[in-house]
């Protein structure tokens, strides 16, 4: 589904990714771990085409297409979703209008008719209830006045609404209380099918428990330095990153 080869990227002239290679197949969930500042969010942002990040070398293909040549919106319409590590506020653009625009833009790309207003309302209600977001959030601006945890729930809610083929969850578990984490993880698990895949960035074992990932990778200094099964994740939780750092330097 997604193939990343020798990916190099920089932010404001500073090289961050230094040759990332990763292959993700449909049906798989990959967890990406790594110390703070190792480049996890950079990788996520590069995959979704954030213009702040510059790709300096390498290729990414998504379902046979050259991902890096697509605009951010077309990547989203191809089915890539990112749950932001720090979802920003968009005051004045109501959640309902925002999602209506997103749903219909994605449908238009696939040659589908716009969804009727009543259907959208119904869809939003259904998904909202699944992640435990109150109705009043829908009339507020996107993330406007949402708490940290509510913003994370909102990311998963949007994912549930848009039903992406490939989801990137950048520390969606951080800042969630235990109940919210369960709701979010269960919400995510419900969206897993044999046709979808995900890259989940986390620092915590609890997420591994819930998600039972197929693979765990460790990013360090802009490179994937270890790959393994969930066991690798538990080992890191146990020992920290120091043993990897020591071996790498």
């Amino acid at each position: 589904m997604l193939t990343i080869s020798n990916l190099h990227a920089s932010v404001e002239g500073k090289p961050i990714l230094q040759g990332v290679n990763l292959e993700i197949h449909a049906g798989e969930v990959h967890v990406l771990m790594g110390p703070n500042g190792s480049g996890k969010s950079t990788l996520s942002n590069v995959l979704v085409g954030n213009p702040k990040y510059d790709v300096t070398a390498g290729t990414v293909t998504f379902r046979g297409k050259d991902l890096l040549s697509l605009s951010p919106e077309d990547r989203a319409r191809e089915g890539i979703f990112m749950s932001f590590q720090q979802p920003i506020e968009i005051p004045g653009v109501s959640m309902t209008n925002f999602l209506k625009a997103a749903i219909n833009a994605q449908r238009a790309y696939r040659g589908q008719e716009p969804m009727k207003a009543a259907e959208i309302i119904k869809l939003l209600r259904e998904k909202r209830q699944a992640v435990g977001l109150d109705a009043h959030f829908m009339s507020r601006g996107v993330n406007e006045g949402f708490s940290g945890g509510e913003r994370k729930r909102n990311e998963i809610f949007q994912m549930a609404v848009l039903e992406p083929l490939f989801a990137i969850l950048d520390e969606t578990d951080s800042g969630l209380d235990v109940d919210a984490l369960r709701v979010v993880a269960e919400g995510f698990n419900k969206l897993r099918t044999k046709d979808t895949a995900a890259l989940v960035i986390t620092h915590y074992q609890r997420m591994l428990d819930y998600l039972k990932p197929d693979f765990v990778h460790v990013l360090f200094n802009g490179r994937i330095v270890r790959s393994g099964t969930a066991e690798l994740g538990y080992e890191i939780e146990d020992k920290g990153f120091d043993f990897i750092k020591a071996e790498e330097s």
Binding site: V48, G49, N50, P51, K52, S71, P72, E73, R75, A76, R77, F81, M82, F84, P87, I88, E89, I90, P91, G92, V93, N97, F98, L99, A101, A102, A105, Q106, Y109, G141, V142, Q158, L162
Partner: peptide, 22 residues
């Protein structure tokens, strides 16, 4: 904000419009 919207599939032009309207 523009990028956030584009990541959800909204075109850049539409995203600009939504922000201005907001």
């Amino acid at each position: 904000a523009l990028f956030y919207m584009r990541q959800r599939g909204i075109s850049e032009a539409e995203a600009r419009l939504l922000l201005q309207h907001a």
